Measured scan of single mutants.
Amino acid sequence: GPIITTQVTIPKDLAGSIIGKGGQRIKQIRHESGASIKIDEPLEGSEDRIITITGTQDQIQNAQYLLQNSVKQY
């Protein structure tokens, strides 16, 4: 399918649970989903961080599912 980009906003407090120790968790999510995932640095004074996910519809759905699971375990 076509490559698309979607953005998800997360509270910055949850960023740690998604990134994992030394970036292990986010690497695993990238690997498992096949999507490209970029977590922006939090904006000055903002409570949120923006996650940019790029890939096919399937890859993005996979990545979103894995991201949600990471947050739930936290």
Rank of each mutant, 00 (worst) to 15 (best):
Y65Q: 14
I4R: 01
G55R: 00
Q59D: 02
A63P: 00
T9C: 07
I37K: 00
Q24K: 15
L67A: 01
K38D: 14
I51S: 02
E32C: 05
Q64D: 12
Q57T: 08
A35L: 00
Q57E: 11
E41S: 07
T9K: 14
Q73W: 15
Q28E: 13
K38E: 12
Q28W: 12
P2I: 15
I53L: 09
R49L: 13
Q59Y: 00
Y65L: 10
P11E: 12
A15V: 09
R25C: 09
G55M: 00
I50S: 13
Y74Q: 15
T9M: 07
T52N: 05
K27M: 15
Q57V: 05
I50G: 10
A15P: 10
G34T: 02
H31N: 11
K72V: 06
K72M: 08
I60Y: 00
R25Q: 12
I37P: 00
G34F: 02
G55C: 00
T52R: 11
Q59K: 09
D48R: 04
Y74K: 02
E32W: 02
E44L: 06
T5R: 01
I29R: 01
K21P: 07
A63H: 00
A35S: 09
N62F: 03
G23Y: 13
S17E: 10
S33N: 01
I10N: 01
I10A: 09
S46G: 06
Q7H: 15
V71K: 10
I3P: 02
R25I: 14
Y74W: 05
I3K: 06
S33W: 01
G22H: 08
S33M: 01
A63R: 00
G23E: 07
Y74H: 15
G34I: 00
L43V: 13
I19P: 11
S46E: 10
Q68S: 12
N62I: 05
Q61V: 11
Q59E: 13
I29M: 15
L14Q: 12
K38T: 07
K21C: 05
G23T: 07
I53S: 01
S17W: 03
T54A: 11
E41H: 14
R49H: 11
T52S: 15
N69I: 14
Y65V: 12
T56S: 10
I10T: 03
Q64M: 02
S17T: 05
I29A: 03
D58S: 09
G22T: 14
L66P: 01
G20N: 09
G45F: 10
R30N: 13
E44F: 05
I29W: 14
Q24A: 12
A63M: 01
Y65S: 14
I4K: 02
S17K: 12
Q68G: 09
D58R: 04
N62G: 12
Y74D: 13
G22K: 12
E44Q: 08
I26P: 03
P42G: 10
I19T: 12
P11L: 04
N62W: 05
I53K: 00
G55I: 00
T56C: 05
I19N: 08
K72I: 01
K21F: 07
T56N: 11
T54M: 07
D40A: 08
G55W: 00
G55D: 00
D13K: 11
G1H: 01
I53V: 08
T5C: 03
I39C: 10
Q68K: 08
Q68P: 09
L14M: 13
Q73A: 07
G23K: 11
K38G: 12
T52L: 13
T56G: 07
K38V: 11
G20E: 12
Q7N: 01
Q73N: 13
I19G: 05
I60T: 07
E41M: 09
I26S: 06
P42R: 08
D58Y: 07
L14Y: 02
V8Y: 03
Y74T: 15
I50N: 10
T52D: 08
T5V: 02
L66N: 02
I4A: 02
Y65I: 13
Q64F: 01
L14C: 11
R30W: 06
L66R: 08
